[in-house]
Design a protein around this nucleic acid. Structure first.
Length: 415
DNA sequence: TCTGGGGTCCTAGGACCC
DNA sequence: TCTGGGGTCCTAGGACCC
């Protein structure tokens, strides 16, 4: 077994909020929230009042009346997130980026160049602070799981090194919810059985955990509590699905609402797929009703697709099916489309048979190949003149979007 | 009474095949 | 003819993560 602590976990602190405070010095030291209807990120000053991400703006204002909401300069988020990850990459090629503001790295093998892992972590923190002006926390440990927990413990703006000789001492007094994979439901289920710390989890038999949480989760948590974390750094992982969704507020469940919305969502998803020469066989549509219950319908095709109009028509059929099964639901609050079973394709040859098969299956749709060519032409025009330069009829008029496209792009994973 | 958006993985049941 | 086991694929729903 590898006994050296060479794994780093780097996590920018309250990232969006920190960027806003960096760009506008008058916001520094103040409780601020990025977002509007929903808090996307809160500064540490706001967190002190109990404000956190995912909370409604209204609830946040109740907790902290002097809270300042800021709009979100998402282009700067992307730029500064990339720059921070690049600093990590200056110390090792083995970087696994988790999100815009978070990455793992393995510095085994680069120590002779840059010194021991803790020195590298200090250097990363110093450079991100001086070159970018942002606070970042680092965890250094022998495994990814330990490094991730260490960076959480280090926050805000800190560094924690977990000595391989005392890992279990470090781990076992911590609450279970610091573990990767323990959310509110699992935490509550464990608490019902008087399991609140990772040590108590480790003292619970694996078979008991499996009974409590199922084979996969029980097995995984047992392994993590006993500090057996097999995960390796993965520098590049291909996406397994691509999707888009849109909250609608409270809209009537009628064609006039869901058709243009699904066109827009299909446009976003299919354009992304084509840009990376990918396509998928399974289409899933999600409908959320006004009471926030949500229902999904999926269909798996015999050939993968990436054509905007075909995706839109399939999604429309699925949504019609959902609404037909729920005749009492008259309003919807969200629509979503996801494409999975992703494949890599090299041109339109693979898409063509589907167009034909689809025509056979669905009278009234036609010209699968022509649609594909039209999509490609549109992609080219958008590359040159911008997304808004062209679009499908009802889509190009634009919909009221609760979240700007810039924000959406930040969350998109590389396909 | 204005609850976001983009993902991953797991489970359970049914269909189908050997 | 009946029974059983194992494997794979698909769908729907959940839990979790950032």
């Amino acid at each position: 077994m590898d006994t050296a602590a060479t794994i780093l976990h780097a996590d920018l602190d309250a990232f969006y909020a920190s960027v806003e405070q960096l760009l506008d010095p008058s916001l520094r030291g103040k409780p601020i929230a990025v977002g509007g209807g929903v808090v996307l990120a809160a500064s540490y000053e706001a967190k002190a009042f109990g404000v956190h991400g995912g909370m409604t703006g209204r609830r946040a204002r109740e907790l902290c009346p002097q809270l300042t909401f800021v709009g979100g300069q998402f282009k700067h988020y992307q730029r500064l997130g990339d720059a921070a990850i690049k600093v990590v990459g200056d110390f090792t090629p083995l970087v696994e980026r988790i999100s815009i503001d978070e990455a793992f790295a393995d510095v085994a093998g680069t120590e002779h160049l840059f010194g021991p892992p803790v020195e590298i972590a200090r250097a990363i923190r110093r450079r991100v602070r001086t070159e970018l002006g942002l606070p970042i926390s680092l965890g250094v440990a022998r495994t990814k799981h330990l490094a991730k927990i260490a960076s959480q413990v280090a926050k805000p703006d800190g560094l924690v090194f977990v000595d391989p000789a005392t890992e279990l001492d470090f781990l076992h007094d911590l609450p279970v919810e610091l573990m990767w994979g323990v959310g509110p439901i699992t935490r509550a289920r464990l608490a019902d059985n008087d399991i609140r710390t990772i040590g108590q989890l480790a003292a619970t038999s694996e078979s008991a955990l499996i009974r409590l949480l199922g084979p996969a989760a029980g097995d995984k948590l047992s392994a993590l509590a006993w500090n057996r974390d097999p995960r390796q750094i993965k520098t590049h992982r291909r996406a397994r699905s691509a999707g888009a969704q849109s909250a609608l507020g409270r809209k009537p469940a009628v064609e006039g609402v869901f058709r243009p919305t699904l066109r827009h969502l299909s446009d976003r998803v299919a354009t992304r797929l084509r840009a990376k020469s990918r396509s998928g066989r399974t289409v899933t549509a999600r409908v959320r009703f006004s009471d926030l219950r949500s229902v999904t319908r999926a269909v798996t095709l015999s050939a993968p697709i990436s054509t905007t109009t075909i995706l839109a028509e399939i999604a429309e059929d699925l949504v019609r099916g959902v609404l037909a099964d729920h005749p009492d639901e008259t309003t919807i609050s969200l629509l979503g489309i996801s494409v999975s079973h992703l494949d890599t394709f090299t041109g339109m040859q693979l898409d063509l048979p589907l167009g034909l098969a689809d025509e056979a299956r669905r009278p009234g749709t036609s010209r699968g190949a022509a649609r594909w060519v039209a999509d490609c032409a549109m992609d080219t025009i958008r590359d040159r003149f911008g997304w808004e330069a062209i679009g499908y009829g009802s889509v190009v008029l634009g919909l009221a979007r609760s979240v700007p496209d810039g924000f959406r792009e930040l969350a998109e994973k590389d396909l």
